[in-house]
Design a protein around this nucleic acid. Structure first.
Lengths: 338, 338
DNA sequence: TCTTTCTATAAACGCGCGTTTATATTTCTA
DNA sequence: TAGAAATATAAACGCGCGTTTATAGAAAGA
């Protein structure tokens, strides 16, 4: 303001010019704008916030960096969020949590809100019903989450996006059934995350829908990373139980590990067994064999989520908002007719 | 402060407690700390900044999102930067520039500094001598860049990290020479970026050092992405010039494209030609053939860069700081004895 | 021409915090 | 015991901005 005052007019006039108020004579407005341009005047963000403006910053909180960041898709997520926020004039404060149980980490997240560094937060890899997130919501902060909808959430003031795992599972099972497979196993993911039970449910429903019996021996527990897929298969092979003719994996990384383990046992994909993954990992198209998988349009998903969050911050929406993102079957070389 | 005042003492006392000043009676200090804990008091960041404190935030500026974000390594970069910053009590404001020539994008970056949202900035994918970066440095902002050192930079107040491309090239050429190759070509990267000319220089020096003549016909111009490698090879094949027995590529992505193009011409790696890449892309170990490449420890690099930037912000260092990060040859299956 | 209404500018206040200066209290020395 | 030194608390100021209230000025109506 001080700088603009040197331009001959008063601060309130400048304020009205910046905020596009009515009662300011056109020529004065012109002059002020010219001076602002000339002096390259940029308002101090902290002062603006202190005087009642928003920070125009959203927090991006990624849980479990190690796992998330090793996953290609996170890149797209981050880029998509930043670009969408940017196009609406918002900045992104990026934060990583090693795990959502550590009290110190949680304190760090809450402090970012309490310090008023951000107007709202977007959580990736967190559980919807994480207590500290519940608390933030109840304290009136704007929050968006990639997770499933939970019972009771409809009453709360949050934004939730999730993947339509049921639809994806249905497509996978139907595709395999179309290839005459009747023995379809599942390498399921981490049951503590949304995707785990969600995909398992979808698997059961899809199998039932296609009239294929579920054999529990062919449901192998795993996590969401390559190593767990590798170990799950090795574990299974030790039992001596014969393999099914096809398997669906929790995601592509798990599939990579599983295929590696299978190969080490002399079992080839797709010659001996068909595999379908999830996520369309960047590696999947170049993997040997190129992996048939279910692709999610993460970019579009994050665009919606980011925009919803900003809408909420700007009080353009309120209450509970949710949407699910569909999946698309990408057919490559890892499945073969039975 | 107000909240703590309700605890019976005055604001200045609280200030001294928080800042660990001497003149405060132990029992009063205890009481204040207890009250702060009890009320979960968190100071408002904007108010602190306005009152003279730092923002404790660094800006992370990534140029050319499309290319950078499609590159696996960026994930590690971001995670490494955020975690290192976090461990020193700093936050990270992440920003993406589509290109460094667009005036509006540049204005956006400068505004982040001018608005005092950050204490310093870290640039990835920018040129060291980008005019607007020069300007920011001359205006006294702390800046760290991943780029080469340029003549004259030593006098300026910046932090520069680069890859020791010469060392990498030397290792690559020596390795190929050890495999009895005497015809070693180069698919060079974008000459407008640091890595382009730097690797070209290193190539010349290494070839000279090993006593192998450089044939200009075997130096193919390309970019840093897969497509450009693919096109470079196709372009070369059209000329009818015979291939060398080995080629070094600007990075692994280029190698992927080049190998694909070669395969389409019936030329196999490593049977007919040996290939060495750079960066140890996440795909490289699973690519067919698994790619011999030069790995950079990006995590360690970003750790040093982030810490240097924060040191600079906190006036623990000043002036010109630089360091180069060495590379490590990862031998896989894409090279064979000639 | 004088008063009333509207408009343009100027000045003052508060946002929340840190720091500094001024005042009140205690402790120590002469 | 009086005075000086050391210490503890209280009050005031400024950071830069937005907003609100107060004043000065101009236009319109009587």
């Amino acid at each position: 303001m001080e700088i603009a005052r040197l331009a001959g007019v008063s601060r309130s006039t400048v304020s009205r010019v910046i905020n596009n108020y009515s009662n300011v004579p056109p020529e004065t407005r012109e002059k002020v704008l010219r001076i602002i341009e000339q002096y390259h005047y940029v308002p101090n963000a902290s002062a603006q916030v202190l005087a009642g403006k928003k920070t125009r910053t959203i927090g991006l909180f990624m849980i479990e960096a190690g796992q998330v960041s090793s996953d290609m898709l996170t890149n797209m997520l981050i880029a998509s969020i930043i670009e969408n926020a940017s196009s609406r004039g918002y900045y992104v404060l990026t934060h990583i949590l090693r795990n959502a149980e550590d009290a110190e980490s949680i304190r760090g997240v809450k402090d970012i809100f309490y310090q008023r560094r951000i107007d709202g937060g977007l959580f990736i890899g967190a559980n919807n019903d994480e207590p500290f997130i519940e608390q933030l919501i109840s304290e009136g902060y704007s929050v968006a989450i990639v997770d499933q909808e939970k019972p009771g959430c409809e009453e709360s003031n949050r934004i939730v996006a999730n993947f339509d795992n049921e639809s994806g599972m249905m497509q996978a099972v139907k595709w395999l059934a179309g290839l005459k497979h009747r023995q379809i196993g599942l390498i399921s993911g981490d049951m503590r995350r949304y995707s785990g039970p969600s995909k398992l449910d979808g698997y059961y429903k899809a199998m039932k829908h296609c009239g294929i019996p579920v054999e529990k021996k062919w449901i192998l527990p795993a996590g969401f990373n390559e190593q767990s897929g590798y170990e799950a298969v090795n574990e299974f092979m030790r039992t001596g139980v014969p393999l099914p003719t096809a398997m669906i994996t929790a995601n592509d990384s798990v599939a990579f590990g599983a295929i590696r383990a299978l190969r080490e046992h002399g079992i080839l994909v797709p010659q001996h067994i068909s595999i379908i993954g999830f996520d369309d990992h960047a590696l999947s198209s170049r993997f040997q064999p190129a992996l048939t998988t279910l692709r999610i349009d993460f970019g579009a998903m994050m665009e919606r989520l980011t925009n919803s969050l900003i809408d909420h911050i700007e009080h353009r929406t309120s209450g509970f908002t949710k949407f699910a993102v569909d999946m698309q079957l990408i057919v490559r070389d890892s499945c073969r007719e039975n």
